[in-house]
Design a binder for these strands. Structure first.
Length: 422
RNA sequence: GGAGGAGUAGCGAAGAGGCUGUAACGCGCCGCACUCGAAAUGCGGUUGUCAUGGAAGUGGCACGUGGGUUCGAAUCCCACCUCCUCCGCCA
């Protein structure tokens, strides 16, 4: 959510910034409602002030045994008017809030122009895609052949875009999760969180999934709860409506969670394999910091996620999202894309974003600054990494001509010493 | 699921329709005094938000949340949420 006063004071700037995203929002209604609100507020506050003064006077007169009938009648009338005007203001404020909640974040000045994924500049590339002396197979074929992933029965037991891991596959998934968490906690100073996998509506609004993207979520019928699409939601909302001790910043958290996404509008995309499932595992990195540090923190966070791929020996590249491809709440995002032989291309495996104060304002996440004043924190997060896609990348990049898969060195301790799945 | 109890500032805690109750008192924190320095002590300060204003300031709102009663609500009424205790059930 943008600052109401900022939008009021800089409508042109906001219009331009949002046009860069390719979905310009009309601010005319907003500015008109804002003016109405302030006009009405000014009047009703004067009325309330009078009510307070006279009511106090009534108390004094009553105590002195004086006549107060006329004053009470007048105040009764005044209170009725106040009530009516308060209603009007409430309606206006609700409309304003809806508009404000549906305006995306303003892209950072360093974000390149562009309208789609195709316009995202490559920032850097790491590793060389392997040259296979045989025809490499996609991970879903490898997984099925080794009997370590079962897509067929996933469909039977639940439905499309669900799967079972089995045996070494199951252990590989678990190993990747543990490995990532151990790396981020031991070497990158993140404090591990194990969050709830369901959150209430306020949390979903806080991080920006709602109200705009309700169709992407799974909601638990008969409750106010949603299945989380990412651990970002519970972990960022950990400090919702709190004023943090400024000394405690920056706060680094990492969290494993299952993630649930309805994938509305993704019909026909990535229909095979682990790439796009309704339920997948992810290790998420979340940061809370002072505004002046958030862009340094974004670089560091991205580097922390890259480190996982480097240690796993998986080739990747980093792209910076152009304005048109930027997520709703984000001011700047780097995507890390891992090499997938089956796609003959790089595929997103992590998305690292600085939300600046956009989420913090929605969620009321503040800290006490050096002057003792409450100030909005900046929030960041990134995948560190998406586990299913990591497993897919391992299976494909480490496959051997005999159909077996070499276990990356760093994962072997987690695999009970297993060096090859066959 | 049933029966009780409780939610007030950073923390603890008082207040039970208007009477120095934006909120005592204690702790914490900041400043000043005393001191060579510190401790102890004393004095002062210490919520957020909205509106208005160049600023100083002025005003509105907020005592878990949302409604209601009243000229006036932290205080009375209703609903909901959270926490605690006991019972039942359960990994």
């Amino acid at each position: 959510m943008l600052d109401l006063k900022f939008v009021r004071g800089n409508p042109e700037l906001v219009r331009e910034a949002l046009a860069k995203r390719g979905s310009p929002v009309s601010l005319d209604d907003f500015l008109d409602l804002d003016e109405q609100r302030r006009d009405k507020l000014f009047i009703v506050e004067q009325m309330k002030s009078r009510r307070n003064i006279v009511s106090e006077e009534i108390g004094r007169l009553k105590k002195a045994g004086k006549e107060t009938k006329d004053m009470i009648l007048e105040m009764k009338e005044l209170s009725q008017q106040i009530k009516e005007r308060d209603e009007e203001i409430k309606v206006i404020e609700e409309k304003l809030q809806i508009i404000l909640l549906n305006i995306p974040n303003v892209p950072h000045e360093s974000v390149p122009a562009g309208s789609s994924e195709a316009d995202n500049p490559v920032v850097r590339t790491w590793g060389e895609p392997r040259n296979f002396d045989f025809s490499p197979r996609p991970h879903w074929e490898i997984g099925e052949a080794l009997d370590i992933i079962d897509f067929e029965r996933g469909g039977k037991v639940t439905g499309a875009r669900f799967s079972f891991y089995k045996g070494s596959g199951s252990r590989l998934e678990r190993s990747v999760i543990s490995y990532m968490l151990d790396l981020h906690t031991a070497e990158h100073n993140y404090v591990e969180i194990f969050p709830p996998f369901m959150v209430n509506r306020d949390s979903m609004v806080g991080t920006g999934q709602l109200p705009k993207f309700a169709e992407d979520m799974f909601k638990i019928e008969g409750t106010d709860y949603y299945l989380i699409p990412t651990a970002e939601v519970p972990v960022t909302n950990l400090y919702r409506n709190e004023i943090l001790d400024g000394e405690k910043l920056p706060i680094y958290h990492c969290a494993y969670s299952a993630c649930f996404r309805a994938e509305a509008g993704a019909a026909g995309r990535d229909t095979r394999g682990l790439i796009r499932q309704h339920q997948f595992n992810k290790v998420e990195l979340v940061k809370f910091c002072r505004p002046e540090h958030s862009y340094d923190e974004l670089e560091k966070l991205t580097a922390n996620a890259e480190r996982v791929l480097q240690l796993l020996g998986l080739p990747y590249r980093v792209v910076v999202l152009c304005a048109g491809d930027l997520g709703f709440s984000s001011a700047k995002t780097y995507d890390i894309e891992v090499w997938l032989p089956s796609y003959q291309d790089y595929k997103e495996i992590s998305s690292c974003s600085n939300f600046e104060d956009y989420q913090a304002r929605r969620a009321g996440i503040r800290f006490r600054n050096d002057k003792g004043k409450a100030e909005l924190a900046h929030t960041l997060n990134g995948s560190g990494l998406a586990v299913g896609r990591t497993v897919a990348a391992i299976l494909e990049n480490y496959q051997e001509s005999d159909g077996s898969v070499t276990v990356p060195e760093v994962l072997r301790p987690y695999m009970g010493g297993l060096s090859r799945i066959y």
